[in-house]
Amino acid sequence: MASKIYQWLDERLGFDDLYKGLLDRPEPRGTWWNTLGSATLFLFTIQVLTGIFLLVYYTPSPDHAYDSIQYIMNGVAFGWLIRGIHHWSATLMVLLVFLHMLRVFFTASYKFPRELTWMIGVLLLLTTLGMGLTGYLLPWNQRSYFATTVATEIAGLVPWAGPFITRTMRGGNDLSALTLSRFFAAHVWLLPLTLAALIGVHLYLIIRHGESEYPTEED
């Protein structure tokens, strides 16, 4: 019965072809270092899921941001766990992204025809760091407040356009409710969507080109 249902669906959806094309493709012999990209993708998924759950209680307003997180940590069942996973997986994701980049660099995997994969990867790195920057403000405690003060000051050091960039990031001259609100919007919609779209292109390119062979001594 189950196999009949599967067959019926497969005739219409083409699971088998999809599986062969996406997952059962031939790959050169790799090492554990080749798994860093997949590990990052896994963490991204974790971040999306735990992020959705945090949204159930988090409130992006200066009046309630801190209190709502205190409530998540101390009031709600398993709130500490969901936020803990989000926190540590964020930290680990930045680490893995860098390690993944180093692996690609040292195995020379960025060369033709994979230059575009590398470029998308650079954008992925920057977007991931953007997620870190915007997420850091959301607890609205002393540390996040002044970390964002410093970060937006640094952005203001850009010649000529600097002060305007700072005002754009803050939504005005001061770090305010507007800053929290726009960092929140960037953290839960703008950047994740960008990240997801870039990941899509990145994966398409990886499947199209296959993984690279490790360079030999002659290379």
């Binding site: 899921l49 759950f53 709600v76 398993f78 709130g79 996973i85």
Partner: peptide, 15 residues
């Protein structure tokens, strides 16, 4: 391990 706490987390105020 992730799903069960997540369900508890969402239902907590109702319970």
């Amino acid at each position: 391990g992730i799903t069960l706490p997540a369900v508890g987390y969402v239902l907590d105020p109702a319970i």
